[in-house]
Lab assay of single mutants.
Amino acid sequence: MQIFVKTLTGKTITLEVEPSDTIENVKAKIQDKEGIPPDQQRLIFAGKQLEDGRTLSDYNIQKDSTLHLVLR
């Protein structure tokens, strides 16, 4: 499925993911596309910070959802 990741600069990254993918996995995909190390990434969805060990389906993230990427 496709999800979107919006950065603070207003750029939107499109990712191909599975509901069973972990947040860690998603961060690795963002690193592949953007070169941002996962340890600098914070992903936010519906006002919640997403934890590495959980999956997209744990957070009820569905296709065409938009996550927000904050760098630390």
Rank of each mutant, 00 (worst) to 15 (best):
L50P: 01
K11V: 13
I44Q: 04
I3V: 09
S57R: 09
E24R: 10
M1I: 07
K29Q: 04
D52M: 04
L56T: 03
I3S: 00
E51H: 06
L71G: 11
G53F: 13
M1D: 07
A28G: 08
S65Y: 12
D39H: 04
T7P: 06
K33Q: 11
Q62V: 13
N25T: 14
I30Y: 05
S65E: 07
I61P: 01
L71Q: 03
P19Y: 04
G53L: 11
T9W: 03
P38T: 08
I23V: 04
K33N: 08
R54F: 07
T14W: 04
R42V: 08
D32V: 10
I36D: 06
V5Q: 00
S65Q: 14
K6Q: 13
T7W: 12
P38F: 13
L50T: 07
T7I: 03
I36E: 06
A46M: 03
G10R: 12
A28Q: 03
I23Y: 02
K33E: 02
V70K: 05
L15V: 03
I36V: 09
K6P: 01
L43G: 00
A46H: 15
L67R: 01
T7G: 03
T14Q: 05
K6S: 08
I23R: 01
N60E: 15
P19G: 12
S20E: 04
Q49R: 08
T14F: 09
E34K: 02
G47W: 11
E16S: 07
I13M: 04
D21L: 06
V5S: 01
H68F: 08
K29H: 07
K48E: 04
L71H: 11
T12F: 05
I30E: 00
L50V: 06
V70G: 04
T22A: 13
E34P: 02
Q41T: 05
G53Q: 05
D21H: 08
H68I: 03
G53W: 10
I3N: 00
G10V: 09
E51G: 08
N60V: 11
N60M: 04
R72L: 09
L67D: 01
T22H: 14
I44T: 13
L43T: 01
F45K: 02
F4N: 05
I30S: 01
T12Q: 06
D64P: 06
Q41I: 07
S65I: 03
Q62W: 11
L71I: 09
N25V: 12
G47S: 04
D32P: 03
K6L: 08
S57M: 05
L56E: 00
I36G: 05
T55Q: 13
D52R: 03
V17Q: 07
E51D: 15
R72W: 14
E34G: 11
K33L: 04
F4P: 02
E16P: 14
S57W: 11
I13D: 02
D64G: 07
D52W: 09
D58A: 12
Y59L: 09
E51N: 04
D39V: 12
T55V: 08
G10A: 04
T9N: 03
T55L: 14
G53R: 04
K48S: 07
S65A: 13
I44L: 04
L56K: 00
T66H: 09
N25E: 15
D32E: 06
S20V: 09
N60Q: 09
L8W: 12
D21A: 14
G10S: 06
F45I: 09
R54G: 05
I44R: 10
K63M: 15
S57Y: 13
H68M: 02
L69A: 08
K29A: 15
L56Q: 00
K63V: 14
E16Y: 13
S57V: 06
L71D: 07
T9P: 05
L8Q: 03
V70Q: 02
Q62E: 12
K11Y: 11
Y59G: 01
K6D: 08
D39E: 14
D58R: 06
S20F: 12
E18S: 12
F45S: 12
K29F: 11
S20W: 06
S65K: 02
K27T: 02
Q2A: 09
E18H: 12
I36N: 06
E18T: 08
L43F: 15
Q49T: 12
V17P: 02
L15M: 11
Q2V: 10
R54D: 13
I13V: 09
T7F: 06
Q41F: 12
S57N: 11
E18R: 14
K63H: 10
D52L: 06
N25P: 02
V5W: 01
E16N: 13
T12R: 14
S20H: 09
T55K: 06
T7M: 11
T9A: 04
V70F: 10
I30Q: 00
Q2N: 02
D21W: 03
D21N: 04
K27N: 02
I23S: 02
I44F: 07
N25K: 08
K6R: 10
T7H: 03
D21V: 05
K11I: 07
I36P: 03
D52H: 03
K27I: 08
Q62F: 10
V70W: 06
L69V: 03
T14S: 14
L56D: 00
E18L: 15
D64L: 08
G10H: 13
I61W: 01
Q2H: 07
H68R: 02
T22S: 13
I23D: 01
G10N: 15
D21S: 03
Q31G: 05
G53V: 15
K29E: 12
E51S: 09
K48H: 15
V5F: 06
Q40V: 14
P37K: 04
G47L: 14
L69G: 01
Q31V: 15
R54M: 15
V17R: 00
K27V: 07
T9K: 10
L43R: 00
L8E: 15
G47I: 02
L56R: 00
H68Q: 07
R42S: 12
Q49E: 05
K63L: 13
P37A: 04
Q40G: 06
Q40W: 06
